[in-house]
């Protein structure tokens, strides 16, 4: 079973995303901010990461840049999942190493479509 780390400071978003991932047959883990997410990645690198942008302690962009410099950190498919909709923000995320980008609000169709494009689903 593939694994996905949900990184978001909103408990409700983590719960909704968790249900979607369950339907897609993913085993999910949760982190409330970038710092927690980095620690989870050190102990076990997931196949995919759903990543919020604005979070306390460490934001999504800083987490992503740190992850991509970590040994093995180039492996996970990172899907930014954020309320940020400016094209400049999207470009910044892609340049930092995001594979895909989801603008909130989202639904299961959007997540599965992004996972399919990233080769996580067939």
């Amino acid at each position: 079973m593939k694994t996905c780390l949900i990184v978001d400071d909103s408990k409700m978003i983590r719960r909704v995303a968790g249900r979607i991932l369950q339907d897609l047959k993913f085993e999910s883990q949760e982190a409330e901010n970038g710092q927690q997410a980095i620690e989870k990645c050190y102990s076990r690198m997931p196949d995919a990461i759903l990543l919020d942008w604005n979070m306390p302690v460490m934001d999504g962009l800083t987490f992503l840049k740190t992850l991509r410099q970590t040994p093995g950190g180039e492996q996970p498919v990172v899907v930014f999942c954020t309320a940020e909709r400016d094209v400049s923000k999207i470009v910044e995320a892609i340049e930092a190493g995001a594979n895909e980008y989801v603008m909130k609000p989202f639904d299961s169709d959007i997540i599965s479509s992004k996972f399919f494009q990233a080769g996580l689903l067939s």
């Binding site: 400016d86 094209v87 999207i90 892609i94 603008m103 989202f106 959007i110 479509s113 992004k114």
Partner: peptide, 20 residues
Amino acid sequence: THFEVQRGLPIRDLISYFDR
């Protein structure tokens, strides 16, 4: 809509071929 462009369209294609 925001939902329609996110179904099936890779993010790179969205920013290359669409304006917000």
